[in-house]
Nucleic acid binder design. Sequence first.
DNA 1: CCAAACTAGATGCATTTGCATCTATCGCAC
DNA 2: GTGCGATAGATGCAAATGCATCTAGTTTGG
Lengths: 168, 168
Amino acid sequence: MSSPAPAGKAPAGAGRPGGSVSGKDVRLAAETWESLFRSQVAVMRRLQAGPAFKKLPVNEYDVLFTLARCPTGKLRLNEINDHVLLSQSSLSRLVDRLEKRGLVERSTAPEDGRGILLGLTEAGLELQKDIGREHVRDIAELLLPALTAAEQQELMRLTEKLRAKLPD
Amino acid sequence: MSSPAPAGKAPAGAGRPGGSVSGKDVRLAAETWESLFRSQVAVMRRLQAGPAFKKLPVNEYDVLFTLARCPTGKLRLNEINDHVLLSQSSLSRLVDRLEKRGLVERSTAPEDGRGILLGLTEAGLELQKDIGREHVRDIAELLLPALTAAEQQELMRLTEKLRAKLPD
DNA sequence: CCAAACTAGATGCATTTGCATCTATCGCAC
DNA sequence: GTGCGATAGATGCAAATGCATCTAGTTTGG
């Protein structure tokens, strides 16, 4: 909140070079978000129903996945929290559960005594890869018949751009 | 489960006319989904943080919204359930809460004694419009600076196509 | 017409979630 | 250095969620 503009009431046309925002623009944005949201829900519902997530809830898998894809293999809890749609406290307890199951390990962060570094254990990596294989198959089964490769490329490009241009 | 194909193990290349599925295809699909998912999470996180959803949790607003946009104004609970990422029992209790607050009304479905029709009350419609206005503003503030109108159109087209082509 | 299988929705109960708060560390001003 | 606001996580507790199950109405097969 260091912007000079009044919080929560950005001037119309913010971010558009000299343009003003029409009702049409606003409606298009709302419809686009609605569509993005619904398709995400629809795909997620089907993925969750698959057998891959009987072993581990989606949110918990997502943490394992995030750690597995990270180059260093370890992440701070607050970094993970940015990735996941969960409150800080929920993530803390989710990590408790993963730790109790021996899938991850907490370690204190060097250079910051407050921070906690989270890393996968051998078992955690194993389980992630196991679920991951099945998960990827399920995804492909849903997306391949629906969109061409070019369309998938474009969808990826647009969602990446959207995410990159979000504030903060 | 009436398909002759073995459940959970559709033949490679299902839905693609004569094509086979390469590892590349599978990877692209997985990356596309990942990107779609993350951008949805990122946008949703920011929307949830806004003041619009202090009055009503997102899931509950979503039900009001779904009812408001429905032509007849009334929907069966199971229809609503398809729209929302919630279990049947959770939706049932969510509707309990909305009903207790006087925002919706249950009525028995004609032609099916098991079914429940859900409709907005006057207060429910009012609140939906109220939150909706602010919500739409927030969405526009996030999307307009990130994507051009043409890009939004394309994103909407792709997500609609994806959703339309999902099984069942 | 009746019984068995199926579907829509509600409910008991354990688990998960979020809000508010607490503790500990950090960083900055003085 | 000392104090003070900010940040990283953990925790108490109430509320929300999901699974399994239950009830009731519907459809199907004989």
